[in-house]
C-alpha cells in the first residue's frame, strides 16, 4: 500500500448538486451544435463483458466516470472524478532493481523508491500527466479512464450480441453515476435502443429530472439505489440529501409505468443495517407500483482501489455484516412489501 500520503482528492463536501462540467449540458439545451449520437464522446473506466448480476441475461457493463454523490462505502472510487487519473498498484510493481522506467519519466518527481524497493507515488505532486503509466511495463502504474465515442463503445457491446440474443441480456450503464456525463449517456442509450440492444442502468438517481426522464425513454430496466429514507443521514454518508433522489424515483415510476424498476439498497454496517432503516425504504418502495426491492450486502472489495489512487478508505476498519444479518433484513423488507400489498 502507498504510505499515508496527503489525499489528493478530498471527497466532501465536494459536489454541489448539478455541478456538471461543460460536457454535461442537457441535450435539449442545444447551446452548442450537437454532434450526432454516434460521435459523442465520454469518459469510461471499464467495459466489462459477461456481467451476470446487473440486469437480465448476459450483459456488458460500461462503467462511466463521474458521480454527484460521495458515498463512504463506494466500491468504485476510481469512478468519482471526471478526469483520467493515475492509479498505482504496488503489488504489480517489479521493484526498482528490475525496472525503474517510471522514475526516469516523471516530470514532477512524484515517484520515489520505497523501503521494499518498489516505487511510491506522491499523489500531492502528481498532476496526472500519465507519462509514467505509459512507461510502466507491468501495468503497476495504470490509468483509470479513457475516452470513447458512442460508436466505439457500442461496437464493444455488440461483440457479444450473440450472447444477448440467447439470454435476453444487453447493455448496462454503471459508474459512478452513469447519467453524470448526461449527453454521452443519453446518446449511448438512444443509439443502443436504435440498434435494438436491451438497455439497463444502475443509477443513484441524483441527477436532474430532465436527464432521467430522457433516459427513461430508452431504457428497458433500471436499478435505482436508495441508500436511506432519512435525508439527514443520507447527507451525512453521501454528501447530499435524498429529496431529489426520492422525487426522481417517484416521477420515473409515474412517467414510465412499463419500465422494470428494481430499487436497491446497499446495506452498510452502522448506516442502514437496522430494521427501521430498511423498513422505511421498503415502505417507500411499496408506494411505487410494480417496483421490486433488493438488498445488497456491504463488501470491502473496493478498498484496494482507494490505495491505488492515493486515497484512504473512509470506512477503514468496518467489517462485514454479521452472518445472517442480510437474510434477516430481507425478511423485514419482504414482510413490509406483503403488508403494503395487502393494504392496497
Amino acid at each position: 500500500m502507498a504510505p499515508a500520503a496527503p489525499q489528493a482528492f478530498r471527497p466532501r463536501p465536494a459536489v454541489a448538486a448539478g455541478a456538471f462540467d461543460t460536457r454535461n449540458r442537457l441535450h435539449k439545451e442545444k447551446t452548442l451544435p450537437t454532434l450526432p449520437d454516434t460521435k459523442q464522446k465520454g469518459l469510461v473506466f471499464n467495459i466489462q463483458k459477461y456481467s451476470v448480476h446487473d440486469g437480465p441475461g448476459i450483459r456488458t457493463i460500461i462503467f462511466l466516470k463521474g458521480c454527484s454523490l460521495r458515498c463512504d462505502w463506494c466500491s468504485n472510487p476510481e469512478s468519482q472524478a471526471l478526469h483520467r487519473q493515475l492509479a498505482y498498484n504496488p503489488q504489480k510493481c517489479l521493484g526498482v532493481d528490475a525496472c525503474k522506467r517510471c522514475l526516469d519519466v516523471c516530470p514532477h518527481k512524484a515517484i520515489s523508491v520505497g523501503e521494499d524497493r518498489k516505487v511510491v507515488v506522491d499523489f500531492t505532486r502528481c498532476d496526472n500527466c500519465l507519462q509514467c503509466a505509459e512507461a510502466c511495463p507491468a501495468d503497476a502504474l495504470n490509468v483509470y479512464g479513457y475516452e470513447v465515442s458512442v460508436e466505439q463503445a457500442l461496437a464493444r457491446v455488440e461483440e457479444d450480441d450473440i450472447f444477448y440474443s440467447r439470454s435476453g441480456g444487453g447493455l448496462t450503464l454503471s459508474g459512478g453515476e452513469p447519467l453524470y456525463q448526461s449527453e454521452f449517456a443519453l446518446a449511448l442509450l438512444r443509439e443502443a435502443r436504435k440498434r435494438r440492444i436491451n438497455t439497463c442502468i444502475e443509477t443513484c438517481g441524483n441527477v436532474p429530472w430532465e436527464v432521467l426522464k430522457e433516459a427513461g425513454r430508452y431504457l428497458d430496466s433500471v436499478f435505482y439505489d436508495v441508500k436511506s429514507a432519512d435525508s439527514a443521514r443520507h447527507a451525512r454518508v453521501t454528501g447530499t440529501g435524498n429529496e431529489r433522489i426520492l422525487e426522481n424515483l417517484r416521477k420515473l415510476r409515474e412517467a414510465y409505468p412499463g419500465l422494470a424498476i428494481t430499487v436497491r439498497t446497499p446495506v452498510i454496517p452502522g448506516v442502514n443495517d437496522d430494521e427501521a432503516s430498511i423498513g422505511a425504504i421498503a415502505d417507500f418502495v411499496c408506494t411505487l407500483p410494480g417496483a421490486t426491492y433488493e438488498l445488497l450486502a456491504y463488501h470491502r472489495m473496493g478498498t484496494p482501489k482507494y490505495g491505488y489512487i492515493g486515497r484512504t478508505y473512509p470506512l477503514e476498519g468496518v467489517g462485514n455484516l454479521p452472518e445472517g444479518r442480510i437474510e434477516e433484513l430481507r425478511a423485514v423488507a419482504k414482510a413490509r412489501a406483503e403488508c403494503c400489498q395487502a393494504a392496497n
Binding site: N46, N76, L296, H299, M301
Partner: peptide, 10 residues
C-alpha cells in the same frame, strides 16, 4: 479471474 459482484469491477 474476475470478481463478479453487482456494480463492481475488479
Amino acid at each position: 479471474l474476475i470478481v463478479r459482484i453487482a456494480g463492481y469491477s475488479a
